[in-house]
Computed example of a mutant assay.
Amino acid sequence: MEKIQAYVEIKGIPFIKATNQQLLNDYLYPAIDAKEKKFIVTANPEIVMAAEEEYFYKKILKQADYVIADGIGVVIGSRLMREPLPERIAGYDLMQQLLEKANQDQLRCYFLGSKQEILDKAVAKVKVNFPDLVIAGSHHGYFDINDPSIAEAIEKAQPDFIFVGLGFPNQEKWIHRYSNQFSHGMFMGVGGSFDGLAGHVKRAPKIWQKLNVEWLYRLIKQPSRWKRMLQLPRFIWHILWRK
């Protein structure tokens, strides 16, 4: 793991202290150009609280190369700690920017996760929107993560980017377990982003994103998420209690 000097530790998790553009220009693009192997975690309050309850998962997050604040709750928490992160870095937007880089440099991308139907639509959209990148392969997310054959097949495809949409904590556990088999590659846990790529789930309008209430839009559109949203006030309470 590369030693990063600028980070904010929240509940034991080191979040990189950088804007989206700084992350790309100072860290990710140079690592991609140098054919290095890196592990990106897109962490929101729900992931931080899950790590609080499982030591092994927290250990994995702490060993990642870059943990980004993919959730305005994390940014708010950093401000309450008086160690403010500069901004939220949306995982979906970062994935799109990495796809643009792959398209520009004709790099190889592998997509792992989601249902087969959604995955097929997502890959088809990527082919249309980023015609110059190479689809190294794809595999649905319905498999035993203890099965090493999936990683072996992906490694043979020699991808430069491995987007893993298995949901937390499985996606981070899979990357942690198998990435050491690869000679290079940018590994990124992307949660449900394949749903967005496929058009199955709509992003919040830009104004909602600018106001940092994208979480509220998603809750309105998917009321079943309300239990997950309870992790936000719990997370904030933990930050205040620590203070």
Rank of each mutant, 00 (worst) to 15 (best):
D144S: 06
A136W: 03
D160P: 00
L133W: 06
Y142H: 12
D160M: 03
I154A: 11
A122H: 09
D147N: 11
I145A: 10
S138Q: 14
K125F: 09
P159K: 11
F143D: 03
I135P: 01
H140Y: 09
K125E: 15
H140Q: 14
G137H: 01
F161T: 10
D132I: 00
I162A: 14
A124D: 15
A136Y: 04
E155L: 03
D144C: 04
Q158D: 14
P159V: 09
D120G: 04
D120R: 12
G165H: 04
I154E: 03
P148I: 13
F143A: 06
D120K: 13
A122K: 08
V126L: 12
V134P: 00
I150F: 07
Q158P: 00
P159G: 13
K156T: 06
S138Y: 09
V134I: 14
S138C: 11
L133V: 06
D144I: 02
G137Y: 01
N146I: 02
K121N: 08
D160K: 04
L133A: 11
Q158T: 12
Y142T: 07
V128D: 05
V128C: 05
A136C: 08
K121F: 01
Q158E: 14
H139L: 08
I135D: 09
D147E: 07
N146W: 00
E155C: 10
F143G: 05
A157D: 04
F143E: 02
P159C: 11
V126I: 14
F163W: 08
V134A: 11
G165Y: 02
K156V: 03
H139W: 02
F163K: 06
S138T: 05
S149P: 00
K127I: 07
H140G: 14
V164C: 13
A124V: 01
I145N: 09
I135Q: 09
I150R: 13
F161C: 13
K156G: 01
D120I: 05
V128H: 10
K127L: 09
N129I: 02
K127R: 15
K127E: 15
P148G: 14
Y142K: 04
I150T: 13
D144P: 00
F163A: 12
V164N: 09
H139C: 09
A153W: 00
A153I: 00
D144N: 10
I162N: 13
I154D: 04
H140C: 11
V123N: 13
K127N: 09
G165D: 04
D144R: 04
N146R: 07
A157Y: 01
A153N: 05
A122P: 01
V164M: 06
K156H: 05
Y142C: 08
V128Q: 14
V164D: 07
F130C: 08
F143N: 04
N129P: 00
E152R: 15
E152I: 10
I154N: 06
N146C: 01
P148F: 12
P159S: 10
N129W: 02
A151R: 07
A122R: 06
D120N: 15
V134M: 10
F161D: 11
E155A: 14
H140T: 10
V128Y: 03
V126S: 11
Q158A: 14
V126K: 07
E152K: 15
F163E: 03
K125I: 05
D144V: 02
I162E: 10
G137L: 00
H139A: 15
F163P: 00
P131F: 13
G141A: 10
V123R: 14
F130E: 10
I145G: 08
V134H: 13
D147A: 07
N129V: 03
F143Y: 08
A151T: 06
I154K: 08
A122T: 08
